[in-house]
Lab assay of single mutants.
Amino acid sequence: ITIHVNGVTYHFDNPEEAEKFAQKMAKTYQLKMEIHNGEFHME
């Protein structure tokens, strides 16, 4: 699972971890999250 946050790329093997991380980042930084081709993009 690949997550892009403001141009920084994070890779996770565990989908649950990826989702937790994505939600935490979105909440902490008030980010808008989109999913493209199974990759999370946040800005």
Rank of each mutant, 00 (worst) to 15 (best):
K24G: 02
K32Y: 14
M25A: 02
N37V: 06
K20A: 08
E17S: 10
E34Q: 04
A18Y: 03
N14I: 10
N37Y: 11
I1E: 01
E43H: 13
Q23C: 15
D13Y: 11
I3T: 01
A22P: 00
F12R: 00
A26M: 12
G38F: 06
I1H: 04
E19W: 14
F12M: 01
I3V: 11
N6P: 01
E16N: 10
E39K: 04
E19K: 10
E17F: 07
T9H: 13
D13T: 11
H41I: 08
N14G: 07
I35W: 05
I1K: 04
M25G: 00
E34G: 03
V8A: 08
M33F: 07
L31F: 07
T9F: 08
F21P: 00
E19V: 13
I3Q: 00
A22I: 12
I3Y: 03
T2K: 12
H36T: 05
F21S: 00
E19H: 11
Q23A: 08
A26S: 07
F21W: 12
M25V: 05
F12Q: 00
F12L: 01
E34M: 07
Y10R: 03
E39H: 11
M42L: 11
D13W: 11
M33W: 09
Q30T: 02
A18K: 02
F12A: 00
E39N: 04
A26W: 14
M25W: 06
A26P: 01
E17A: 09
E34W: 10
K24C: 15
K20F: 09
H36W: 08
I3F: 05
Y29N: 15
M42H: 03
V8E: 10
M25P: 00
K24L: 13
Q23S: 06
Y10T: 02
A22V: 12
E43L: 13
K32N: 12
Y29G: 15
V8Y: 12
T2F: 13
K27A: 11
D13C: 14
T2I: 11
M42N: 04
M25H: 01
A18L: 06
K24A: 08
L31Q: 10
H11D: 04
E34N: 05
I35P: 02
F12Y: 03
T28W: 15
N14W: 09
V5P: 00
T9A: 13
L31A: 09
M42Q: 03
K27G: 03
M33N: 01
K27P: 15
N37Q: 05
H4C: 14
T9V: 12
N6V: 13
V8P: 00
I1F: 08
E16A: 07
G38T: 04
K24R: 10
G38M: 05
T2M: 06
N37R: 02
Q30S: 03
N6S: 08
P15E: 06
V5Q: 01
Y29A: 14
M25R: 00
T28E: 15
T2L: 11
E19Q: 10
H41R: 04
K24Q: 10
K27S: 04
F21C: 13
F21L: 01
N6R: 06
P15G: 08
H4N: 04
A22D: 01
V5I: 08
E34R: 06
P15S: 07
I35V: 07
N6Y: 14
A18F: 07
F21Y: 02
A18V: 09
N6C: 15
I3R: 01
V8R: 12
N6W: 14
H36Y: 10
N14R: 06
Y10V: 06
Q23L: 10
A22C: 14
Q30A: 05
F12T: 00
E43W: 14
M33S: 02
I1Y: 08
K32W: 13
G7F: 15
T2P: 04
F21H: 01
P15H: 08
G7V: 15
H11M: 06
K24M: 12
E19Y: 12
H36N: 05
A26T: 03
G38N: 04
N6G: 10
L31Y: 07
V5G: 02
M42W: 07
M25E: 01
Y10P: 00
F40V: 10
A18I: 02
Q23V: 12
T28S: 05
K20E: 09
A26H: 06
K20G: 05
L31N: 12
M33Q: 01
V8W: 13
M42G: 03
A26I: 11
M25L: 11
Y29P: 15
T28Y: 15
E16V: 09
N14L: 11
G7Y: 13
K32V: 14
Q23I: 10
Y10F: 11
K20R: 07
D13Q: 09
E16W: 08
P15F: 12
T2N: 11
Q23R: 09
E19P: 00
T2Q: 07
G7W: 14
Q30R: 03
T2S: 08
V5T: 02
A18R: 02
P15V: 10
E39I: 09
N6D: 11
E43V: 15
K24S: 05
E39F: 05
E43K: 13
N14D: 10
N14S: 07
E17G: 03
Y29D: 15
E39V: 05
F21I: 01
Y10W: 07
N37E: 04
Y29K: 13
M25T: 01
M42Y: 07
H41A: 02
H4G: 03
M25D: 01
F12N: 00
Q30M: 05
A22R: 06
M33D: 02
I1N: 02
N6L: 14
N14F: 09
L31K: 07
I3M: 02
K27V: 10
V5W: 06
G7R: 07
M33H: 01
H41Y: 14
H41K: 03
I35S: 03
I1T: 04
D13N: 08
D13L: 12
K24V: 12
T28Q: 14
M25Q: 02
D13K: 05
T28K: 15
T28H: 14
N14E: 06
E34T: 11
I35H: 03
A26K: 10
T28P: 00
M25K: 00
H11Q: 09
K27W: 08
K27L: 11
M25Y: 02
G38H: 05
D13E: 10
Y29I: 14
H41Q: 02
T2G: 04
K24Y: 15
N37G: 06
I1L: 07
A18Q: 01
N14A: 06
T9G: 11
G7K: 09
G38Y: 03
Q23H: 06
H4W: 12
F21V: 01
H11I: 08
Y29C: 15
Y10Q: 01
V5Y: 04
L31W: 05
Q23F: 08
E43I: 15
Q30V: 02
Y29M: 12
M42T: 03
I35Y: 09
T9N: 07
P15W: 14
E43T: 13
A22H: 03
F40C: 14
Y10G: 00
N6H: 13
H11V: 07
L31S: 08
Y10M: 04
V5F: 10
K32D: 14
T2Y: 12
P15I: 12
E19R: 10
G7Q: 08
A22E: 02
F12W: 02
A18W: 06
Q23T: 11
F40E: 03
E17R: 08
K20I: 10
G38W: 05
P15Y: 12
K27N: 05
K20P: 01
E34Y: 13
K27R: 06
K32F: 13
I3G: 04
A18T: 01
A18D: 00
K20S: 11
K27T: 06
Q30D: 12
H11W: 11
A22N: 02
M33E: 04
A22K: 04
V8D: 10
E19C: 15
I3C: 14
V5N: 01
E34K: 05
F40D: 03
H41M: 05
P15K: 11
G38I: 05
A22L: 04
E39Q: 08
Y29H: 15
G7H: 12
F12I: 01
T2C: 12
K27M: 08
A26L: 11
K24N: 08
F12V: 00
K32T: 14
Q30I: 02
N14M: 07
T28G: 03
P15L: 12
Y10E: 01
T9I: 11
E43D: 06
M33V: 13
F40Y: 11
T2A: 07
L31D: 15
E16D: 11
V8K: 10
I1W: 11
P15T: 11
T9P: 13
K27Q: 10
K24H: 13
Q23G: 03
H41S: 04
M33A: 02
H4V: 05
E19I: 13
H4P: 01
E17H: 07
V5E: 01
A18E: 01
E34F: 13
E34S: 08
V8S: 09
H41V: 08
K32M: 13
I1M: 09
H41C: 15
H36E: 07
N37C: 15
Q30P: 15
T28L: 15
G38Q: 02
N14K: 08
A22Q: 04
K27D: 14
K20Y: 08
N37I: 08
A22M: 07
E39G: 03
N37W: 11
F21R: 00
D13F: 10
K20W: 06
P15A: 11
